[in-house]
Amino acid sequence: MLERLEELRHEGLTAVEASNSEDELREIEVRLLGRKGALTDLLKSLGTLPKEDRPAAGQAANRVKQEIAAQIEVARGKLHAFNLATDLAGDGLDATLPGPKPPAGGLHPLGQIARELEDVFQSMGFRIADGPEVELEDNNFDALNIPADHPARESHDTIWVTPEGDGRGKGKGVCMRTHTSCVQIRALREHGAPLRVVAPGRVFRQETPDPTHDHTFHQMEGLVVDKGVGVHHLLHAMNTLLEGVFGRKVETRLRPGFFPFVEPGFELDARCPFCKTGCRVCKQSTWIELMPGGMIHPNVLRACDIDPDVYSGYAFGLGLSRMVMLRYGIDDIRWLLSGDLRFLEQFRA
């Protein structure tokens, strides 16, 4: 009995020693320690021994069983460590493999920039206003001090809904708005003075599309009316705004510009962000024309029942389409309204 035990012990430990895979260990476990294993069989046959020998033989058999089991665990641990080391050193792990493409959506760059600017303006106390894209002639022209015979009203600039004759030219027509400036009128008439408002939206012109022009483009109108408002305030607001957009101080300058609804009127230029000595974008001038603006014409205030002797104000128009193109270096304005996913996919945010 004891010899048989010693035999099995030797056989087990030798096999464990010689094994080098989980499968082999498993096989030894089953062969010796399993329900039908040799050692189990031996334990079962204890009953054939004389009564007084049974405890000692039982203890010896259990010791051998535990010893082999322990050795199997030790071998397993070594094997596991070895396998892990092999894995870690091996070629099986290619960290450079690409991942699956996550499902993605995206925000239109025009929407993104409008929302960003709305945030900047709201932090400066501006409310956001809205107005229709199909607009009354009075709001688009008359109230903005654009005279009845002004060329801008004519068909080669403005897209009309109302046929010629039909009250058109007398403030009674309906047109696709040519600028967001008409929201000035709506906001001033609705809220009166003092007021701070911005109004983003699309506008329409009779324009043959090319890389830098489209018949539909986006603007954001801004306006402040209060007592004692001057050009220095306009300049400050524009500088703050550009700082918000570009994330740093931007050098600016005002030049004379003419728009019937402001006087004096300006063009605001910013230092070209792309060069120091002149490039294609700034037409070699180192300045980029960014936004028109000016002091609201007294006639506009009057048209909105605001006394120009008490209140003054400034207004400006931001070219959102242009800002987007400048920010991302988009080479053709027609991408913006193309709906082409190859374009849209580039703007995640």
Partner: peptide, 17 residues
């Protein structure tokens, strides 16, 4: 216009609706 010093407007702070 280069003579103009940009100046913040002085008005009561009102949270815009």
């Amino acid at each position: 216009y280069d003579q103009i010093q940009a100046t913040p407007i002085q008005a009561p702070i009102v949270a815009p609706p």
